[in-house]
Design a protein around this nucleic acid. Structure first.
Length: 407
RNA sequence: GGCGGGUUGGCGGAGAGGUUACGCAGCGGAUUGCAAAUCCGUGAAGACCGGUUCGAUUCCGGUACCCGCCUCCA
């Protein structure tokens, strides 16, 4: 069996991957807050973990991998957008407008991610559908002494979990010294974070033992991953920006609620995306969505290719120059690989080794750049093997999806 | 301030303690009515200072610079 090696943020080492249950390899990836179109930065983890999903399916079998990616549909930005529509004269209730906004955003997300060649996960839970599980987990944390209620809020007692800070390599004391946290008067400790907070009558809320309120951001992933993947699962992924505080807090919640479990064994984080050498942000004016690029006529496979040219653990710079390079490389590569898929593989020993070379590259902590190089060498061999048969049709492209499943 | 990542040829970007990454651009050539596309060939690297080693771009230490997270945004 192929030996998959993955860099584990938790242990800061590249490790052999050994699933808890090879018959059901389980992976959870933090998904988007559904208030607007997915931007290009949202696409990177989706593509990175799609490659991992495909690799796991290839190695353990398509029916033996469970991939869960959530939708956060409780959020101030969603409420604000719904309120804007209401203020603009929409007669429907805020609740209806929120539902409409999240539904349409999820629909867009599915369209855009499919256009980038990503497979759908097995489950895509919405936070609002798991409020009951969150309340149960919070109650449990209070009962175990890891959380407390104050002024309608429920807070996680950071000092009650000795492992707090381990994932991101910080100590509670260092963080307090940094002092960039909001210190609410009802917190026992400045680093304590919200599990549940009160809601106002006009905003969405759910009845709870602590009054009508809404969950904090982090608890949803703990509750949903537990519900769908169990006490312990194999891989937890997301952007490096989530390492702290989101993932740190998830670990604290889940480990304290289920002390006998391991929660997630392997933590994987993709580095951030930049645009023309700068952080993509609304304030810098270099912010754009996946849809913006698709509408400009940039094919999804070009976007995917650019993303996979750079290793996931390194910052990736989206540039016009790189987009052009990806376009050219695909123009050469795809016709050659189309031949492979249509005519079958020539009896060349070199080509026979290509699927293995690609699998080995991807198994080495998802070395997609190396896998692409393997494909290009294979393409070169194919063109030579079929010289005369090749009719170059740059407009006739195969789906990158096929390429990866064929490996 | 705390934490983390990076510095490879004109550009993007990998692996590997000693042997061609791969590609984009460039250059030379083939083909083409011109051009484009395509094909063949080709030069070019490892921030700086030390250390380990027979040998380091690859390991260790330091310096400089760049970047990200900790803040609405992944």
């Amino acid at each position: 069996m192929t030996r998959i090696r993955l860099y584990n943020t938790r242990t800061r080492a590249k490790e052999d991957f050994a699933p808890i249950d090879p018959a059901n390899v389980r992976m959870y990836v933090c998904g988007p807050t559904v208030y607007d179109r997915a931007h290009l930065g949202n696409a990177r983890p989706v593509i990175v973990f799609d490659v991992l999903f495909r690799l796991l399916r290839h190695v353990y079998g398509p029916d033996h991998v469970t991939y869960v990616r959530n939708f956060t549909d409780v959020d101030d930005k969603i409420n604000a957008e719904a309120q804007r529509r209401k203020d603009a004269g929409d007669p429907r209730s805020l609740e209806d407008l929120i539902r409409e906004r999240t539904d349409e955003t999820i629909r867009w997300y599915h369209e855009d991610m499919a256009a980038l060649g990503n497979l759908p996960p097995a489950a895509e839970p919405r936070a609002t559908e798991y409020i009951g599980q969150m309340i149960a987990m919070i109650s449990d944390l209070i009962a175990r002494g890891h959380a407390y209620e104050k002024a309608g809020h429920v807070l996680f007692r950071v000092r009650s979990y000795e492992g707090y800070g381990k994932l991101s390599g910080r100590s509670v004391d260092d963080m307090i010294a940094g002092a960039r946290v909001e210190v609410a008067p009802f917190k026992e400790d400045p680093m304590d974070f919200v599990l549940w907070k009160p809601s106002t009558p006009d905003l969405p809320g759910w009845e709870s033992p602590w009054g009508r309120g809404r969950p904090g951001w982090h608890i949803e992933c703990s509750a949903m991953s537990h519900e769908l993947l169990g006490d312990s699962f194999d891989i937890h992924g997301g952007g490096i920006d989530l390492q702290f505080p989101h993932h740190e807090n998830e670990i604290a919640q889940s480990m304290c609620a289920h002390p006998e479990s391991e929660f997630a064994r392997v933590w994987m984080h993709n580095e951030m995306l930049q645009v023309e050498g700068r952080k993509m942000s609304k304030s810098l004016g270099n912010f754009f969505t996946v849809r913006d690029l698709l509408d400009r006529g940039i094919p999804g496979e070009v976007i995917r290719f650019v993303m996979l040219m750079t290793h996931y653990s390194r910052p990736m710079d989206w540039t016009e120059k790189k987009r052009h390079e990806a376009d050219k490389r695909l123009d050469t590569l795809l016709p050659a690989l189309t031949i492979a898929l249509e005519k079958g593989r020539p009896p060349s020993g070199a080509w026979r080794d290509v699927p293995r070379a690609i699998r080995d590259s991807l198994s080495n902590d998802l070395n997609t750049a190396d896998a692409i190089a393997c494909l290009e060498m294979a393409g070169d061999l194919l063109v030579k093997a079929h010289r005369g048969d090749l009719v170059h049709q740059s407009g006739d492209r195969v789906d990158l999806t096929q390429l990866q499943s064929s490996s």
